[in-house]
């Protein structure tokens, strides 16, 4: 089979949310010696881009976005052993968390998968993450961006706590901070000193890309 054929069946498999097609096409592509990076980027990521587009246009719902990301995850698992240390993740690191006391993770997960698709390396700390763990992860991974999600008015304040803790650890200046979730407003983001409040996942991811690409340009 020509390389194009594998790539297009990976792309279509993602768009059609078809676990079997993607896993099989990924296996066949690897057996045929197709470049693993191309398999991910030109096959699966290209499919995810179409899914993201359809989501933005309202043709696909959250469920499709979530399932597409899962299909892609299974496909990437097949390809991973062939990557041999070469990385497709070129846009930099993001530490992502739902803050302490909050168990809402759907929004955060969408952002995490879209960031991954864009080429960020995301360290997703999960839900109900204590402030100290977020600060620890920033120290350890030295990301360009910290993303936080909170849906409860009760837990929103934890985002401010994280920012203060990052300041105390002299880490605040080293990262951009983006926050999101139902209850979070731009006014609140300004009040706690976050750099941006995302209205939705796509807009937030665009902002992250803008940050890292404009800082690359400056360097």
């Amino acid at each position: 089979m020509a390389v194009e054929k594998y790539l297009s069946s990976l792309k279509e498999g993602i768009i059609n949310l078809d676990f079997g097609t993607v896993v099989n096409a990924a296996k066949e592509a690897m057996a045929a010696g197709v470049d693993p990076n191309a398999t991910i980027n030109k096959g699966m990521v290209a499919g995810m881009a179409v899914v993201g587009d359809k989501f933005e246009k309202g043709e696909y719902f959250l469920s499709e976005l979530v399932v597409a990301a899962e299909v892609m995850k299974e496909g990437v698992e097949v390809v991973k052993p062939y990557l041999k240390g070469s990385s497709t993740l070129g846009l930099g690191k993001v530490v992502m968390a739902t803050v302490e006391g909050d168990h809402h993770d759907l929004g955060k997960n969408i952002v995490t998968s879209l960031l991954g698709v864009q080429g960020f390396q995301v360290f997703d700390l999960g839900i109900d993450v204590p402030t100290a763990r977020i600060v620890g992860a920033v120290k350890e991974h030295q990301p360009a961006i910290v993303g936080m999600s909170a849906l409860l008015t009760l837990t929103m304040t934890k985002m401010g706590e994280v920012i203060e803790a990052l300041k105390s650890a002299s880490l605040r200046e080293k990262v951009k901070i983006i926050i999101g979730g139902t209850s979070v407003t731009t006014e609140f983001a300004d009040r706690i000193g976050a750099d941006h409040r995302a209205a939705n996942a796509l807009e937030g991811v665009k902002k992250c890309v803008e940050w890292v690409t404009s800082s690359e340009r400056r360097q």
Partner: peptide
């Protein structure tokens, strides 16, 4: 629905 589990089960 954590991690989109419902949607994944619904598909799989």
């Amino acid at each position: 629905s954590e991690g989109g589990r419902f949607f994944i089960h619904y598909a799989k």
